[in-house]
Design a protein around this nucleic acid. Structure first.
Lengths: 221, 221
DNA sequence: ACTTCATTCAAGCACTTACTTGAATGTAAC
DNA sequence: GTTACATTCAAGTAAGTGCTTGAATGAAGT
């Protein structure tokens, strides 16, 4: 029934899935989804040792999900293409739809607040154009500096409490963060709603926004 | 940086990917993509022992990719939703795009023949309506009997050589099979082209055709 | 209740994977 | 060339995975 070439193909497909089957590698992919990175920055952001991070990166490269390129002493990794991003997102979608545990965790993140539907990127773009929305970028300042959506205001979760008082309570707040696997926006929305503000998440994150060719402010180039 | 709920979410996403990271489970999913099945038929089709197959199925169920349901003494498994199908297909797309090994295997399947672009399901549907195409279903007879595209003629690879002589050489032949991971159609197209016929594969397989709501002839219901 | 049958569970084995540590590679600057 | 630095390699250990075997569950029919 299954001759050799079929088995060989399945091995390759399974290899791709296997590359996605480690939480550490998903963390790395989340970082790479935001932009290309060297090994050391990736290791620092993900909390892995450098050697371990390098091994994971090679695993991802073997699976075709990332590519690497030397730049002087450093090796720069990046996602191979947008399909990698889609694969990451689809994993999340399947898990959110079908796994009760995920639903439970997301409810916990909302901290008792209701969990409104996210705002589509299309809708957000329209409302940004007409100025009828406050956009918050809930990521570390260095990532905000590297790239963010024009018009967004940067705030970490820690800073959020301080700036809430200064926000216009009449306009809706939309929060976004790294993307597929980032929970900052979830937590920010919960905090904002706890203070009575009308807050929602943007659907997806910065990588998806950029992938669609929408405007992004970048630090270099 | 990564607090506990985030790690818990990543564990769940990784669990989904892990479920897809075994060739045996991909084989099972390929079967389930065609329709719901009990454990024993799945074990037989995939060449796994029943106990082993059952374990794989439970792995897939924990990942939310399949659901089960008792029917008398038997337990019927099926794909949870169309997202599972998309995930399977995206795995294949990434592998075909980025892994040289996959390209190599597919060239080998073509047996030296050129490898034409597949026919889109839309185009095939139109040409079926106007009768300008010969449609071949390259699957085992039992699977053909269970469900197939109206107007298709069933032929296994073994039978193909015999029927080639009887085919109208003026009309293009389109072959399809199980879907994402099935190579029967690839091999059939190579054999047909070797005999000088104008043959191409249908894009995807029966599961994708059915998923789009196109007509399917089924044995029961 | 007993038997039959499909499926699942549990234990054991060979094999693989993730992470750590320390050495090796390769590039750039002096 | 020597030194410094980023990354990769290699070896070792603990934990996990896939498959097999044989027993256990649970539903149907007698």
């Amino acid at each position: 029934m299954s001759n050799s070439p079929k088995a060989a193909l399945l091995d390759e497909y399974a290899l791709v899935a296997r590359a996605l089957s480690s939480p550490a590698r998903l963390l790395i992919l989340e970082q790479l989804a935001q932009g290309e990175r060297g090994v050391e920055p990736l290791a620092e952001k993900t909390g892995l040792t450098i050697a371990n991070c390098s091994q994971h990166l090679q695993h991802l490269r073997r699976a075709g999900l990332v590519t690497s390129q030397r730049a002087g002493k450093a090796v720069i990794y990046r996602l191979t293409d947008a399909e990698a991003l889609r694969l990451m997102d689809l994993l999340r979608v399947v898990a959110e739809r079908n796994l009760a545990e995920v639903e439970h965790i997301l409810r916990g993140l909302a901290g008792g607040e209701e969990r409104p539907e996210p705002v589509s990127r299309d809708a957000l773009a329209r409302r940004l154009a007409e100025g009828s929305v406050t956009l918050l970028d809930i990521r570390p300042p260095d990532e905000f500096a590297a790239a963010h959506i024009p018009g967004a205001r940067n705030a970490t979760l820690a800073e959020l409490e301080e700036i809430i008082a200064g926000l216009d309570r009449a306009t809706e707040v939309v929060a976004y963060c790294r993307g597929p696997y980032c929970i900052f926006a979830h937590q920010a929305v919960a905090a904002l709603r706890k203070h009575g503000l009308d807050a929602r998440r943007m659907e997806g994150g910065l990588p998806e926004w950029r992938e669609e060719g929408r405007p992004v402010l970048m630090s270099e180039g």
